[in-house]
């Protein structure tokens, strides 16, 4: 069986890309996509460690995460469309009314 370190490295890189996207980008669509990348980075880590340990729990959890991610994407995109209809923009810096 292969060492999981390469997979974990890949997972770390993907997660880093996701984080960078969330923090740096202004477009909400891109941010949502970056969140998806982060979730999938975690999936990679789950499956790699799961198969390394010979345990199916990792794979099962990956499916779970994929389901949640799908739901999240659906809700997120719905909100996005609603926000765009209201504000005619999806620039995150413009959407800063949630404060006192």
């Amino acid at each position: 069986m292969m060492e999981p370190s390469a997979y974990l490295l890949l997972s770390g890189i993907l997660f880093g890309i996701g984080v960078a996207g969330v923090v740096a980008r202004k477009n909400v669509l891109i941010i949502l996509m970056s969140v998806e990348i982060m979730l999938n980075a975690v999936n990679v880590a789950f499956i790699a460690v799961g198969s390394y340990l010979g345990d199916a729990t990792g794979s099962v959890f990956a499916f779970m995460v994929m389901t949640v991610a799908a739901a999240e994407a659906a809700v997120g995109l719905a909100i996005l469309i609603a926000v765009y209809r209201l504000k005619e923009t999806i620039d995150i810096t413009e959407l800063s009314v949630l404060k006192w």
Partner: peptide, 17 residues
């Protein structure tokens, strides 16, 4: 301290990180 609540999601994400 009020100024910390900027309402900009990016800032929140950054502090989260």
């Amino acid at each position: 301290t009020r100024r910390l609540q900027s309402g900009v999601v990016g800032n929140y994400a950054l502090s989260l990180l």
